[in-house]
Amino acid sequence: MHELAIADSIVQSVLSEVERQGYGNLIEVGLRVGELTDIVTDSLCFGFEVLSRDTILRDTKLVIEQVPVSGECLTCRKKTSINIPVFQCEYCGGFEIKVVNGQELDIAYLKVDDDGDNDETEQRGE
């Protein structure tokens, strides 16, 4: 259950980016999460929701792209998909695999609306 800690890193990282660049309204945060990170995306979304609630990210959507594991076979040199947990080449059956994708834990993009701003006048009525 490290999703809350990961969510916290995402919120802090995005907040500092927004502050540094002076972006207006932040609509969306795009995340790329590899299969090998063992992150439960539902828990991550929940953590993001809770931790962003009292920040300017309270209406920001978190969009998660999950990346399957793939690699390069060091025996036949072909690019191969990996059916985890078995790290085996789908072409030659070799087990010497260099992992190429599946370890990502990246903030890929931010979607911002420059016309909006994030001060209190924009806040929705309750």
Partner: peptide, 16 residues
């Protein structure tokens, strides 16, 4: 106006 900014930042970059 909406725009998308590619930032490609590792979530655990501070740790790393």
């Amino acid at each position: 106006m909406e725009r998308r900014i590619e930032i490609e930042k590792q979530v655990l970059s501070e740790n790393d």
